[in-house]
Computed example of a mutant assay.
Amino acid sequence: MNILQINSSARSEGSQSSRLAGSIVERLKAAQPDASITVRDLAAQPHPALDEAALGALFTPAEQRTPEQTARVALDDALIAQIQAADVVVLGVPMYNFGVPTQLKNWIDAIARAKVTFQYTANGPEGLLKGKKVYVALTRGGFYRDTEADSQVPYLKMVLGFLGMRDVEFVYAEGMAMGPEAEQKAIASALQQIEEVVAA
């Protein structure tokens, strides 16, 4: 089993979402000791945004690309290869201003490529990243689960499903900004959720 852990916090150190993602991986590893683990920290290894230069490179035929364009596409290719090889994907996702971090959006933009990770058919779009289990560790300062203010879960369900990843479990740590006691309670709740969803 190949496990890919994506930490999307803007902080390389002290990130609770990354710690919870790591706890999920540890639980998976305990059940599958021979599993291989790849960790990509998007703060330590930031991926460039999808800008005009990147679009130009992607839409230029490979044999016509400049060296700079080839190098830019290769950055996305590396992320695509990682997720294609993964059996399990674990995302650490804090909430920033009601959305996902820019770091995660850049990663999603990199791995979402027509005719590679999804394709359009006569029956509609088809995701090509099938057969993967996804765990998402969410950390929030307040309480947003199952409310209209939670834009993260609908977005992640939609975009992951679009790419073919429909088996997704969410773990919530909420109220993290409401004092030390509330933070401890949130982490304890999330760890309990991890035991339940990973064992399921």
Rank of each mutant, 00 (worst) to 15 (best):
A54Q: 10
A54F: 05
L55M: 15
G56L: 02
A57C: 08
A57I: 04
A57T: 03
L58H: 09
T60G: 01
T60L: 04
T60M: 02
T60D: 00
P61K: 07
P61F: 10
P61N: 08
P61W: 12
A62M: 11
Q64E: 14
R65Q: 07
T66I: 08
P67Y: 07
P67L: 00
E68S: 02
Q69N: 01
T70G: 07
R72Q: 09
R72M: 13
R72L: 13
V73K: 11
L75C: 10
A78K: 13
Q82N: 10
Q84C: 01
Q84N: 03
Q84D: 03
A85L: 06
A85F: 03
A85E: 00
V88D: 00
V89W: 04
L91Y: 07
V93W: 03
V93N: 00
P94F: 05
Y96G: 04
F98I: 01
F98R: 03
G99M: 10
P101S: 06
P101H: 01
T102M: 10
Q103F: 01
L104G: 01
N106T: 05
N106S: 14
W107S: 02
D109V: 04
D109G: 09
A110W: 05
I111S: 08
A112N: 07
A114L: 14
K115W: 15
K115H: 15
V116Q: 13
Y120H: 11
T121Y: 14
A122Y: 14
A122S: 13
N123D: 12
N123V: 02
N123F: 11
N123E: 10
G124N: 12
P125E: 00
P125M: 00
G127T: 12
L129N: 01
G131M: 08
K133R: 15
K133L: 09
K133H: 14
K133T: 15
V134G: 07
V134S: 04
Y135I: 10
A137H: 10
L138Y: 11
L138F: 13
R140E: 05
R140L: 15
R140M: 09
R140W: 14
